Amino acid sequence: MKNLQLKDKSVLITGADSGIGKAIALLFAKEGANIAFIHYHDAKDAQKTSKEIEELGKKVLSFEGDINDSKFCESVVDEVASGFGGIDILINNAGTQFPSDTIENLQEENIRKTFNSNIIGMMLLTKAVFPHLKKGDVIINTTSATAYLGHEELLDYSATKGAIVSFTRSLALQAKPQGIRVNAVAPGPVATPLTEKTFGEEDEDTDKPPLERNASTEEVAASFLFLATDASAQITGQVLHPNGGLIVNG
């Protein structure tokens, strides 16, 4: 019988109705975890994800709402902690992007939405979860290769991803005395519903890393699994780079 790496762990994931978040949710469920996830107005995809988790024999809780709302975050955390008996792992994965070819065309509304979704909401949810965490528990944030390389069409998105790196490093220092590890994953090009919606399906054939293909969401999810287990017990305040061989600094 397979030795499950996350047996009976309680996991809360944002943005797990599709893309990388869904791949993480399914992989963690296969490894024995019960999954709670937050989605933003994607009920059909969320129902499908919930069904797939249940078919793996694990408990699942699904919440629709905006993590930029602190009251919503607190309500979700209380319900997950009550329903699962605690929270062991937090995966901050939710994000959005609005490309613009020039800073002059950046819309203020979209800048604020990007920051609210990608970093402010992340901090609000983490604040709500943190009192429930204990020694050995884990927080993993999703940043991006754009935090290191930049992106000419994603100025505000890249800025939020850089902020996530700094947030990860700082929170790791703060959480170290409690034995809570905080890390991040910075994927390179990945074909997800968000990138296809933003750039179109042809994005899969452009900007390829040295390995000459974009990563699958399942390949990226494996980095999150490593950071969630004792195999990474000596890693905190760090960023993993499943980016196909892109050279990044920092």
Rank of each mutant, 00 (worst) to 15 (best):
A43Y: 04
A43R: 07
K44R: 08
A46L: 01
S50W: 00
E52W: 12
E54S: 14
L56K: 06
L56A: 04
L56H: 05
L56Y: 04
G57A: 06
S62A: 12
F63L: 14
G65L: 07
D66A: 01
D66R: 02
D66Y: 02
D69V: 05
D69S: 03
D69T: 03
K71P: 03
F72C: 06
V76K: 03
V77F: 05
D78V: 15
D78M: 15
V80L: 08
F84Y: 03
G86C: 02
I87Q: 03
I89V: 13
I89F: 10
I91C: 04
N92P: 01
N93I: 00
A94D: 00
F98L: 02
P99K: 00
P99N: 01
P99L: 00
D101C: 14
I103A: 09
E104T: 13
N105T: 12
L106V: 13
L106W: 12
E109N: 13
N110W: 11
R112M: 10
F115T: 07
F115V: 09
F115P: 01
N118F: 10
N118V: 12
G121P: 08
M123K: 14
L125F: 09
K127W: 11
V129L: 10
V129R: 08
P131G: 05
P131Y: 06
K135C: 11
V138P: 10
V138A: 11
T146V: 13
A147R: 01
A147W: 01
Y148E: 00
Y148I: 00
Y148P: 00
H151R: 06
H151T: 03
E152R: 12
E153R: 15
L154A: 10
L155E: 13
D156G: 07
D156F: 14
D156L: 12
Y157T: 04
Y157Q: 01
A159L: 01
G162H: 00
